[in-house]
Computed example of a mutant assay.
Amino acid sequence: MRFAWFVWVVRHINEFGFSHGLLKGAIGTVAVLLTAVLLGFALRRHRPADLAAGGVTAVAGIGWLAFH
């Protein structure tokens, strides 16, 4: 399953902000993932909220990068 997901990401790489260059796309993706990790870490005492907030942040951020 992970391999299939990776193949899908590689095939659609231009949709995730990488069409503006590998560096800009990588910076945007790392920034989104770092934000999700920090948000999840801030809520670490509440495990369900931790996972939900981190997941929603990552999905929303990567979705935003894909369409802008």
Rank of each mutant, 00 (worst) to 15 (best):
H68C: 11
V59D: 02
T57N: 06
G28R: 04
L33G: 00
L65T: 03
T29Q: 05
S19Q: 03
A66G: 01
L38W: 13
I13G: 06
A66H: 13
A4R: 10
G61A: 00
A58R: 04
H68F: 13
K24M: 11
G55T: 04
H20F: 09
W64P: 02
G61T: 02
L23C: 14
V32D: 03
P48Y: 01
F67G: 03
V9D: 04
A53R: 12
K24G: 08
G25H: 03
A4Q: 13
F18H: 07
A4W: 03
I13V: 13
T29Y: 04
I13A: 06
M1L: 14
L39E: 05
A36P: 00
A52E: 05
G17D: 03
H12A: 06
H46W: 15
R47V: 14
H20E: 08
G61P: 01
V10D: 12
H20P: 00
G40N: 04
K24Y: 10
V9Y: 11
G63T: 05
V56I: 13
I62N: 10
G55R: 00
A4N: 05
F3K: 15
T29P: 01
W64D: 01
D50C: 10
G25L: 06
G21R: 01
G55M: 01
A4T: 14
A4D: 05
A52Q: 03
L33H: 00
F18G: 14
K24S: 05
A26F: 14
F3Y: 12
F67N: 12
V10P: 14
G40C: 03
V37H: 12
A53P: 05
L34P: 11
G21H: 02
I13Q: 10
V10N: 15
R44P: 10
R45N: 08
L43K: 10
G54I: 00
F3A: 15
K24A: 03
N14I: 11
H20A: 10
N14Q: 07
E15N: 08
W8C: 11
V9G: 02
G55W: 00
A31T: 04
V9Q: 08
G54F: 02
W8G: 06
A66T: 08
S19V: 12
A52N: 09
G17R: 09
T35G: 02
S19Y: 12
V32Q: 08
V56H: 04
F16Y: 15
A42R: 11
F67I: 15
S19M: 09
W64A: 02
H12R: 13
E15T: 09
F41R: 09
V32H: 05
V59T: 07
G21E: 00
G21S: 04
L33F: 02
F18Q: 12
W5C: 07
L51S: 13
V10E: 09
L51A: 12
K24D: 08
E15G: 15
L33W: 01
W8Y: 10
H68W: 14
W5N: 08
V7S: 13
R44Q: 11
G25V: 05
F41I: 12
R44G: 03
A60V: 02
V10S: 14
A60S: 01
R44N: 11
I62V: 12
W64I: 06
A52I: 07
G61C: 06
F41T: 07
W64N: 02
R47F: 06
L38S: 07
I62K: 08
